[in-house]
Design a protein around this nucleic acid. Structure first.
Lengths: 156, 156
DNA sequence: ATATATCGTTAGCTATGCTAACGATCTCCA
DNA sequence: TGGAGATCGTTAGCATAGCTAACGATATAT
Protein backbone atom coordinates (compact mmCIF):
# COMPACT_ATOMS: atom_id res chain seq x y z
CA UNK A 1 0.00 0.00 0.00
CA UNK A 2 1.45 3.26 -1.13
CA UNK A 3 -0.61 5.24 1.35
CA UNK A 4 1.53 3.88 4.17
CA UNK A 5 4.72 4.82 2.37
CA UNK A 6 3.35 8.29 1.90
CA UNK A 7 2.53 8.57 5.56
CA UNK A 8 6.04 7.46 6.45
CA UNK A 9 7.76 10.04 4.27
CA UNK A 10 5.35 12.68 5.43
CA UNK A 11 6.11 11.88 9.05
CA UNK A 12 9.79 12.55 8.49
CA UNK A 13 9.19 15.75 6.64
CA UNK A 14 6.78 16.97 9.25
CA UNK A 15 9.25 16.14 11.98
CA UNK A 16 12.09 17.88 10.23
CA UNK A 17 10.01 20.92 9.31
CA UNK A 18 8.82 21.32 12.89
CA UNK A 19 12.36 21.14 14.25
CA UNK A 20 13.74 23.68 11.85
CA UNK A 21 10.79 26.00 12.19
CA UNK A 22 11.18 26.08 15.95
CA UNK A 23 14.89 26.68 15.70
CA UNK A 24 14.23 29.70 13.55
CA UNK A 25 11.45 31.04 15.72
CA UNK A 26 13.45 30.55 18.86
CA UNK A 27 16.06 33.01 17.65
CA UNK A 28 13.38 35.68 17.57
CA UNK A 29 11.88 34.63 20.86
CA UNK A 30 15.24 34.69 22.55
CA UNK A 31 15.75 38.24 21.42
CA UNK A 32 12.73 39.14 23.49
CA UNK A 33 13.89 37.06 26.42
CA UNK A 34 11.11 34.51 26.06
CA UNK A 35 11.86 30.88 25.26
CA UNK A 36 9.34 28.86 23.27
CA UNK A 37 7.92 26.94 26.26
CA UNK A 38 7.52 30.13 28.29
CA UNK A 39 5.91 31.94 25.44
CA UNK A 40 3.54 29.07 24.85
CA UNK A 41 2.56 28.87 28.52
CA UNK A 42 2.12 32.62 28.80
CA UNK A 43 -0.10 32.56 25.77
CA UNK A 44 -2.36 29.97 27.37
CA UNK A 45 -2.59 32.01 30.56
CA UNK A 46 -3.31 35.24 28.74
CA UNK A 47 -6.00 33.84 26.49
CA UNK A 48 -7.30 31.07 28.73
CA UNK A 49 -7.85 33.20 31.79
CA UNK A 50 -6.56 32.19 35.24
CA UNK A 51 -5.68 28.52 35.54
CA UNK A 52 -4.32 26.30 38.25
CA UNK A 53 -0.77 25.12 37.80
CA UNK A 54 -1.95 21.57 37.18
CA UNK A 55 -4.38 22.65 34.51
CA UNK A 56 -1.68 24.65 32.83
CA UNK A 57 0.67 21.67 32.94
CA UNK A 58 -1.96 19.48 31.31
CA UNK A 59 -2.73 22.11 28.69
CA UNK A 60 0.95 22.27 27.80
CA UNK A 61 1.33 18.51 28.05
CA UNK A 62 4.07 18.78 30.58
CA UNK A 63 4.55 17.36 34.07
CA UNK A 64 3.83 19.57 37.09
CA UNK A 65 7.47 20.03 38.17
CA UNK A 66 8.33 21.34 34.75
CA UNK A 67 5.43 23.78 34.84
CA UNK A 68 6.42 24.91 38.31
CA UNK A 69 9.75 26.06 36.95
CA UNK A 70 8.30 27.68 33.87
CA UNK A 71 5.83 29.63 35.99
CA UNK A 72 8.58 30.58 38.42
CA UNK A 73 10.55 32.00 35.52
CA UNK A 74 7.57 33.92 34.20
CA UNK A 75 6.79 35.21 37.67
CA UNK A 76 10.34 36.37 38.19
CA UNK A 77 9.98 38.39 35.01
CA UNK A 78 6.73 39.84 36.29
CA UNK A 79 4.64 38.34 33.51
CA UNK A 80 2.33 36.19 35.64
CA UNK A 81 1.22 36.10 39.26
CA UNK A 82 0.49 33.20 41.60
CA UNK A 83 -2.70 33.48 43.61
CA UNK A 84 -3.83 31.10 46.31
CA UNK A 85 -7.30 29.61 46.43
CA UNK A 86 -9.27 30.36 49.59
CA UNK A 87 -11.47 27.31 49.29
CA UNK A 88 -8.87 24.71 48.39
CA UNK A 89 -5.55 25.90 49.62
CA UNK A 90 -3.61 23.27 47.74
CA UNK A 91 -4.35 25.08 44.51
CA UNK A 92 -2.28 27.81 42.92
CA UNK A 93 -3.98 29.97 40.33
CA UNK A 94 -1.83 31.54 37.64
CA UNK A 95 -2.90 34.78 36.06
CA UNK A 96 -1.21 37.13 33.62
CA UNK A 97 -0.10 40.60 34.68
CA UNK A 98 -0.59 43.64 32.45
CA UNK A 99 3.08 43.36 31.59
CA UNK A 100 2.43 39.76 30.59
CA UNK A 101 -0.20 40.89 28.14
CA UNK A 102 2.08 43.53 26.71
CA UNK A 103 5.08 41.25 26.36
CA UNK A 104 3.02 38.56 24.69
CA UNK A 105 1.78 41.04 22.14
CA UNK A 106 5.30 42.31 21.54
CA UNK A 107 6.62 38.78 21.22
CA UNK A 108 4.05 37.88 18.67
CA UNK A 109 4.85 41.01 16.71
CA UNK A 110 8.50 40.05 16.72
CA UNK A 111 7.84 36.53 15.50
CA UNK A 112 5.47 37.76 12.88
CA UNK A 113 8.10 40.23 11.80
CA UNK A 114 9.83 37.36 10.09
CA UNK A 115 6.91 35.12 9.35
CA UNK A 116 4.91 37.97 7.89
CA UNK A 117 7.79 38.71 5.60
CA UNK A 118 7.62 35.19 4.22
CA UNK A 119 3.93 34.56 4.63
CA UNK A 120 2.89 38.02 3.48
CA UNK A 121 4.48 37.36 0.13
CA UNK A 122 2.49 34.22 -0.35
CA UNK A 123 -0.47 34.23 -2.63
CA UNK A 124 -3.83 34.29 -0.92
CA UNK A 125 -4.36 30.80 -2.25
CA UNK A 126 -1.18 29.54 -0.59
CA UNK A 127 -2.16 31.20 2.64
CA UNK A 128 -5.37 29.23 2.65
CA UNK A 129 -3.49 26.03 1.89
CA UNK A 130 -1.05 26.69 4.70
CA UNK A 131 -3.87 27.37 7.10
CA UNK A 132 -5.49 24.12 6.07
CA UNK A 133 -2.20 22.29 6.58
CA UNK A 134 -1.81 23.71 10.07
CA UNK A 135 -5.30 22.58 10.93
CA UNK A 136 -4.50 19.06 9.75
CA UNK A 137 -1.36 19.00 11.86
CA UNK A 138 -3.41 20.01 14.87
CA UNK A 139 -5.80 17.17 14.15
CA UNK A 140 -2.95 14.72 13.84
CA UNK A 141 -1.47 15.83 17.15
CA UNK A 142 -4.86 15.60 18.82
CA UNK A 143 -5.46 12.09 17.58
CA UNK A 144 -1.95 11.03 18.64
CA UNK A 145 -2.66 12.43 22.04
CA UNK A 146 -5.96 10.67 22.41
CA UNK A 147 -5.36 7.11 21.38
CA UNK A 148 -2.33 4.99 21.99
CA UNK A 149 -0.68 3.74 18.82
CA UNK A 150 -2.00 0.48 17.55
CA UNK A 151 0.62 -2.04 16.58
CA UNK A 152 1.11 -3.04 12.98
CA UNK A 153 -0.45 -6.40 13.72
CA UNK A 154 -3.61 -4.96 15.18
CA UNK A 155 -3.80 -2.49 12.34
CA UNK A 156 -3.81 -5.28 9.79
CA UNK B 1 -5.05 44.71 5.79
CA UNK B 2 -6.62 41.46 6.77
CA UNK B 3 -3.83 39.46 5.18
CA UNK B 4 -1.43 40.66 7.85
CA UNK B 5 -3.84 39.71 10.60
CA UNK B 6 -4.17 36.30 9.04
CA UNK B 7 -0.42 35.88 8.95
CA UNK B 8 -0.20 36.85 12.59
CA UNK B 9 -2.77 34.33 13.75
CA UNK B 10 -1.27 31.71 11.50
CA UNK B 11 2.17 32.33 12.99
CA UNK B 12 0.88 31.58 16.46
CA UNK B 13 -0.94 28.47 15.37
CA UNK B 14 2.04 27.22 13.47
CA UNK B 15 4.27 27.86 16.46
CA UNK B 16 1.92 26.11 18.82
CA UNK B 17 1.32 23.18 16.48
CA UNK B 18 5.06 22.67 16.01
CA UNK B 19 5.67 22.68 19.77
CA UNK B 20 2.95 20.19 20.51
CA UNK B 21 3.82 17.95 17.61
CA UNK B 22 7.42 17.71 18.74
CA UNK B 23 6.39 17.02 22.30
CA UNK B 24 4.32 14.09 21.09
CA UNK B 25 6.97 12.76 18.77
CA UNK B 26 9.64 13.06 21.37
CA UNK B 27 7.86 10.57 23.57
CA UNK B 28 8.23 8.00 20.84
CA UNK B 29 11.79 8.96 20.08
CA UNK B 30 12.74 8.70 23.72
CA UNK B 31 11.39 5.19 23.83
CA UNK B 32 14.04 4.30 21.26
CA UNK B 33 16.72 6.24 23.06
CA UNK B 34 16.97 8.88 20.36
CA UNK B 35 16.08 12.48 21.09
CA UNK B 36 14.79 14.71 18.31
CA UNK B 37 18.08 16.55 17.70
CA UNK B 38 20.05 13.31 17.59
CA UNK B 39 17.57 11.68 15.31
CA UNK B 40 17.60 14.67 13.00
CA UNK B 41 21.39 14.77 12.88
CA UNK B 42 21.67 11.04 12.33
CA UNK B 43 19.19 11.31 9.51
CA UNK B 44 21.32 13.93 7.77
CA UNK B 45 24.43 11.79 8.15
CA UNK B 46 22.73 8.66 6.88
CA UNK B 47 21.17 10.24 3.84
CA UNK B 48 23.71 12.98 3.22
CA UNK B 49 26.75 10.76 3.24
CA UNK B 50 29.87 11.57 5.28
CA UNK B 51 30.07 15.19 6.38
CA UNK B 52 32.46 17.24 8.43
CA UNK B 53 31.28 18.30 11.84
CA UNK B 54 31.01 21.90 10.74
CA UNK B 55 28.94 21.03 7.71
CA UNK B 56 26.64 18.99 9.89
CA UNK B 57 26.30 21.86 12.34
CA UNK B 58 25.36 24.22 9.54
CA UNK B 59 22.91 21.72 8.09
CA UNK B 60 21.22 21.44 11.45
CA UNK B 61 21.49 25.17 12.07
CA UNK B 62 23.34 24.69 15.29
CA UNK B 63 26.69 25.95 16.57
CA UNK B 64 29.74 23.67 16.43
CA UNK B 65 29.98 23.02 20.19
CA UNK B 66 26.41 21.78 20.22
CA UNK B 67 27.06 19.48 17.30
CA UNK B 68 30.21 18.18 18.96
CA UNK B 69 28.12 16.95 21.84
CA UNK B 70 25.38 15.50 19.70
CA UNK B 71 27.93 13.58 17.66
CA UNK B 72 29.68 12.44 20.82
CA UNK B 73 26.39 11.03 22.04
CA UNK B 74 25.69 9.30 18.76
CA UNK B 75 29.20 7.92 18.68
CA UNK B 76 28.91 6.58 22.21
CA UNK B 77 25.83 4.71 21.06
CA UNK B 78 27.76 3.34 18.09
CA UNK B 79 25.53 5.05 15.53
CA UNK B 80 28.18 7.19 13.85
CA UNK B 81 31.95 7.19 13.55
CA UNK B 82 34.46 10.03 13.50
CA UNK B 83 37.12 9.81 10.81
CA UNK B 84 40.07 12.13 10.44
CA UNK B 85 40.99 13.76 7.16
CA UNK B 86 44.47 12.96 5.88
CA UNK B 87 44.78 16.11 3.84
CA UNK B 88 43.39 18.63 6.29
CA UNK B 89 43.86 17.29 9.74
CA UNK B 90 41.65 19.91 11.35
CA UNK B 91 38.62 18.23 9.82
CA UNK B 92 36.52 15.48 11.35
CA UNK B 93 34.31 13.50 9.04
CA UNK B 94 31.18 11.95 10.45
CA UNK B 95 29.78 8.81 8.91
CA UNK B 96 26.97 6.50 9.90
CA UNK B 97 27.66 2.94 11.07
CA UNK B 98 25.50 0.01 9.94
CA UNK B 99 23.87 0.17 13.34
CA UNK B 100 23.14 3.83 12.68
CA UNK B 101 21.30 2.91 9.52
CA UNK B 102 19.32 0.24 11.31
CA UNK B 103 18.40 2.40 14.27
CA UNK B 104 17.30 5.23 12.03
CA UNK B 105 14.99 2.91 10.18
CA UNK B 106 13.63 1.53 13.43
CA UNK B 107 13.13 5.01 14.82
CA UNK B 108 11.20 6.10 11.81
CA UNK B 109 9.02 3.00 12.06
CA UNK B 110 8.30 3.84 15.66
CA UNK B 111 7.33 7.43 14.92
CA UNK B 112 5.23 6.35 12.02
CA UNK B 113 3.56 3.83 14.28
CA UNK B 114 1.65 6.71 15.78
CA UNK B 115 1.55 9.06 12.86
CA UNK B 116 0.41 6.32 10.52
CA UNK B 117 -2.40 5.58 12.88
CA UNK B 118 -3.61 9.15 12.60
CA UNK B 119 -2.49 9.88 9.08
CA UNK B 120 -3.51 6.52 7.72
CA UNK B 121 -7.09 7.23 8.63
CA UNK B 122 -7.09 10.46 6.72
CA UNK B 123 -8.75 10.63 3.39
CA UNK B 124 -6.44 10.63 0.42
CA UNK B 125 -7.54 14.17 -0.20
CA UNK B 126 -6.47 15.28 3.27
CA UNK B 127 -3.16 13.52 2.87
CA UNK B 128 -2.47 15.61 -0.19
CA UNK B 129 -3.48 18.76 1.63
CA UNK B 130 -1.22 17.93 4.53
CA UNK B 131 1.67 17.25 2.20
CA UNK B 132 1.08 20.58 0.55
CA UNK B 133 1.00 22.29 3.95
CA UNK B 134 4.30 20.72 4.96
CA UNK B 135 5.86 21.92 1.74
CA UNK B 136 4.68 25.45 2.43
CA UNK B 137 6.14 25.32 5.93
CA UNK B 138 9.45 24.25 4.47
CA UNK B 139 9.33 27.18 2.09
CA UNK B 140 8.54 29.55 4.92
CA UNK B 141 11.44 28.26 6.98
CA UNK B 142 13.76 28.53 4.01
CA UNK B 143 12.82 32.10 3.31
CA UNK B 144 13.19 33.00 6.98
CA UNK B 145 16.61 31.47 6.93
CA UNK B 146 17.72 33.30 3.86
CA UNK B 147 16.73 36.88 4.38
CA UNK B 148 16.78 38.87 7.58
CA UNK B 149 13.40 40.21 8.61
CA UNK B 150 12.51 43.53 7.14
CA UNK B 151 11.00 45.98 9.58
CA UNK B 152 7.39 47.04 9.30
CA UNK B 153 8.48 50.40 8.00
CA UNK B 154 10.58 49.00 5.19
CA UNK B 155 7.83 46.59 4.33
CA UNK B 156 5.38 49.42 3.74
C1' DA C 1 -10.47 10.48 63.73
C1' DT C 2 -7.93 8.39 60.76
C1' DA C 3 -6.61 6.89 56.39
C1' DT C 4 -6.23 8.05 51.57
C1' DA C 5 -5.84 11.07 47.73
C1' DT C 6 -4.52 15.32 45.49
C1' DC C 7 -1.73 19.50 44.63
C1' DG C 8 2.37 21.94 44.16
C1' DT C 9 7.19 22.07 45.31
C1' DT C 10 11.96 20.52 45.91
C1' DA C 11 15.90 17.76 44.68
C1' DG C 12 18.60 15.60 41.37
C1' DC C 13 19.43 13.59 36.73
C1' DT C 14 20.08 14.18 31.50
C1' DA C 15 20.02 16.74 27.25
C1' DT C 16 20.12 20.95 24.26
C1' DG C 17 21.44 25.39 23.20
C1' DC C 18 24.74 29.29 23.66
C1' DT C 19 29.47 32.13 24.13
C1' DA C 20 34.28 32.40 25.20
C1' DA C 21 38.62 30.67 24.98
C1' DC C 22 42.16 27.26 23.27
C1' DG C 23 45.19 24.08 20.71
C1' DA C 24 46.08 22.28 16.41
C1' DT C 25 46.43 22.95 11.78
C1' DC C 26 46.36 25.19 7.40
C1' DT C 27 47.22 29.24 4.22
C1' DC C 28 49.00 33.18 2.55
C1' DC C 29 52.37 36.47 1.81
C1' DA C 30 56.53 39.02 2.80
C1' DT D 1 61.17 30.06 4.50
C1' DG D 2 58.93 31.59 8.12
C1' DG D 3 55.70 33.96 10.68
C1' DA D 4 50.80 36.12 10.97
C1' DG D 5 46.36 35.21 10.69
C1' DA D 6 42.32 32.25 9.59
C1' DT D 7 39.79 28.00 10.34
C1' DC D 8 38.28 23.73 12.69
C1' DG D 9 36.88 21.12 16.45
C1' DT D 10 36.96 20.78 21.39
C1' DT D 11 36.54 22.11 26.25
C1' DA D 12 34.55 24.80 29.94
C1' DG D 13 30.82 27.02 31.93
C1' DC D 14 26.04 28.89 31.96
C1' DA D 15 20.83 28.73 31.32
C1' DT D 16 16.64 26.23 30.19
C1' DA D 17 13.59 22.21 29.75
C1' DG D 18 12.16 17.71 30.38
C1' DC D 19 11.74 13.72 33.57
C1' DT D 20 11.06 10.77 38.22
C1' DA D 21 11.02 10.34 43.14
C1' DA D 22 9.95 12.01 47.39
C1' DC D 23 7.63 15.38 50.62
C1' DG D 24 4.61 18.66 53.10
C1' DA D 25 0.25 20.65 53.16
C1' DT D 26 -4.36 20.25 52.47
C1' DA D 27 -8.99 17.90 51.28
C1' DT D 28 -11.95 14.13 51.33
C1' DA D 29 -13.95 9.93 52.48
C1' DT D 30 -14.72 6.16 55.70
Amino acid sequence: MTKGKDAEALADQLHSAAIHLLRQLRKQDDAGGLSAPRLSALSVVVFGGPLTLGELARAEQVKPPTMTRIVTGLEKDGLVRRKGDTRDRRLTHIEATPKGHKVLAAGRARRVEKLANAVGQMKTRELAELRRGVQLVRDVVASMRGKPARSSEERT
